[in-house]
Amino acid sequence: MDGKRRILIMAVVFGLVALLPIFFGGSKVIMHILIMCLIWSVVASCWDLIMGFAGIFSFGQVAFFVIGAYASAIFSLRLGVPPIISTFLAGAVAAAVGVLVALPCLRLKGAYVALVTFAVHMILAPFLKSNMGRAIGTGGAQGLLTIPPISLFGYTFQNAEPIPFFYLTLVVAVICSLIIILVIMSHWGTAFLTLKDSEDFARALGVSALRYKLMVFALTSFLTGMIGGFYGHYVGMLSTRMLGIDLFVTLMIMLVIGGVGQYPGAVLGAFFTVTINEMLAPVGSYRPLILGAMVLILVLALPDGVVGLIRSLFNLGGRGARAGGRMK
């Protein structure tokens, strides 16, 4: 699938999503679900870029999201930085952490990278709750409350009025998607794929593993951290509950449904998973069971996800098609 076709698909998807408030604008619940779909689509896309295209088993995506959320909240609450700027600063903080995490990962492969990055996820909650965390303004076990909303050109995007916030989130999600598509189609994307397919040969052909691995960690953690900061200003409060296993698994389901390395599958996976997750709310404790069964069936029936199925049905080849389904 070439870049133009990818951009066309994303334009159609986001164009249709942009029309949804016409039909559902009166329902705050549905608008909230749509905003969450857009936020998670960015996180899932970043995870797809690092795992599906660069072949790096980074399990730190939720951690980068939470780091960004806390960083932006702390910048705005404690230092008085306007939220629209603090979200970018949060992206920079997450990117810096991402690069620090990447450095030991450069010497590791496969499951060992997953272990290191998941260790970051695991130690983040105790850190945020600790005295050290409290000292930098994380609010300890209580978390952060009264995080100010984003203001732009004198307008404040309150979560009580979801439609304006929805469109703001849509703009952010579109920009992030464009960045990801451009990266995939650029020589960066080629470098990521070569390092995934055969790192030894890629290096022998002049690809710098150090440079491109650091780049993918920095870029994906920046975007994830930035959208995390955005999320914090939307919900207005943060706690370490996000670092539980539920969110991590839900994010993984998004990728599996969309198809790993099948961008823009991650975006579709995010919309599908968030919606199904909300629809299953009435079944309570059976929800994880149903979601789990669904993932099992999908993995067996559609190993390359929904987008992989669409590609094979319509014989759409290209970079994404061959990038997926070959995790090492």
């Binding site: 794929l193 995934k196 397919d197 055969s198 030894d200 890629a202």
Partner: peptide, 13 residues
């Protein structure tokens, strides 16, 4: 430049 005993190719390309 070098090649490898077991052919190394980029399966995604």
């Amino acid at each position: 430049a070098r090649t490898f005993q077991v052919p190394q190719i980029f399966a995604s390309l």
